[in-house]
Write a protein that binds this DNA or RNA. Sequence first.
DNA 1: CGTGCACTTGATAGAACTCAAGACAGGTGG
DNA 2: CCACCTGTCTTGAGTTCTATCAAGTGCACG
Lengths: 264, 264
Amino acid sequence: MSRLPALDPEHPDQAELIIRRLSKYSELAPEEIELLRSLSETPERLPAASELIAEGERLESPRLLLAGWACRQRYLSDGRRQIFDFILPGDIYGLCLRPQAVALCNAVTLTRATISNAAALGDAVLSHPDGYSGLTTATLMSASADEVYLLNQMVRIGRQTAYERVAHLLLELHHRLSIVGLANDGFMPLPLTQEVIADALGLSIVHLNRTLQQLRRDGLAEVKGGVARLLDLGRLRGLADFRAPHVSARRLENGGMRLHAAAP
Amino acid sequence: MSRLPALDPEHPDQAELIIRRLSKYSELAPEEIELLRSLSETPERLPAASELIAEGERLESPRLLLAGWACRQRYLSDGRRQIFDFILPGDIYGLCLRPQAVALCNAVTLTRATISNAAALGDAVLSHPDGYSGLTTATLMSASADEVYLLNQMVRIGRQTAYERVAHLLLELHHRLSIVGLANDGFMPLPLTQEVIADALGLSIVHLNRTLQQLRRDGLAEVKGGVARLLDLGRLRGLADFRAPHVSARRLENGGMRLHAAAP
DNA sequence: CGTGCACTTGATAGAACTCAAGACAGGTGG
DNA sequence: CCACCTGTCTTGAGTTCTATCAAGTGCACG
């Protein structure tokens, strides 16, 4: 693994993250990388708790989260909240293959964040896929992976215990952050309050807190001060039944494109 | 509301269900209706518990469930199962806008079922959307609604109590079945074992059973013998926080509807 | 008339939630 | 510089919800 460039979340002057991520899925041509790099030219800073997308809003063009964390969520009328998934640095959001698509839920930032419009990427993928085959392949495989994360989330909250849920989510986030170089060997940023994690996992704050303590007592994971440390990836994977989505990057370049792609 | 034609699940000689459903989303031209009708010409009968799609399988062409019920699901390695969503009569499944898509989870029949290949529909939507604008609009809106059902499911299992979950699921199924004319005024087929419902809602069989009894004692819903009767839709909607997905049917008739089979 | 599957019931244990209070920041204003 | 917020995290106690275990019922089917 090559050394990672410094990644100051407050001054992300490049689109390295998304370049790294999409490169995992398909080889990118120089002009495709150039296109991605150009996405960071018009960054916009947002405070935490900013609404990125409102439910029902028309999705005009995709956007890129350059830095910071966000999520998609919905509230029940009595205030209970369910977080569907997290949007991590380097992720594209608001991209939908359906024309005239409308957002099905809202998206908000969980930390300070930097975003930029990714209309150029949307254009490439939706209108000129033949001219940007690598980029298109990679973007679609990435979208596919995002759908897998959604299904994972459903299994977690539907069929796993609190202990398993937390372990599984931490592993998934670690995996996703590893891809863009933000996590290494169990160490990763986790700028989420326990309330947010609880709302994602369908747990109460108090119970999540105790579950985290249990994981720490068991020598499996420590979460503190916006950082998480997974101390025993092997045991965590076993207990949480976690398997990294095998998005066989770069294999079968032509032909059987082996991705977990999707199906309603 | 017009009278419904007889719908014998064992001999569904027409594609009326999907025609009704898609017509809710967009006005269909005569030739579009003809195309849909032609989908029922090569029906295939399957017993219960047949695998419709295997996880990882390449999605060649969409298919239509003419009769019977199915679901998408995943198992944990210790046998626990999570059902993600239900596929109802008249539903399309295996349609994915991504080229070369692969199934993200498997799909199986829950009852005897009749299916047919819907390649013609896939072709129309993916390759000739301009020639089938109504059909394309309707199909995409329908796919969109399916995604909403997935999010609903996540909210149910993540943030609702057992009682609320059951009520909410029954209302959603009733709503979906109403659209194709299979449910009326609280009365609907429900050919699911309690085990299946439990696996969808993230509950144990025993607890689901008791929750159903509670709903019945409260005069809200009766489930028995493959049939469900929702006795007080208003109260059910209130307690489950259910709102029918407002699928803005029939607006935006011709917009820049442009969808392509972006192909790497 | 047995057999199997779905459903039901009772008893009990365990998981997770709620309430309430305290500890510990980081930031603010005096 | 310090007192004071406010939001987050932590802890304890008690309750509620849900799962598990174990039988038993009912019905459809061969």
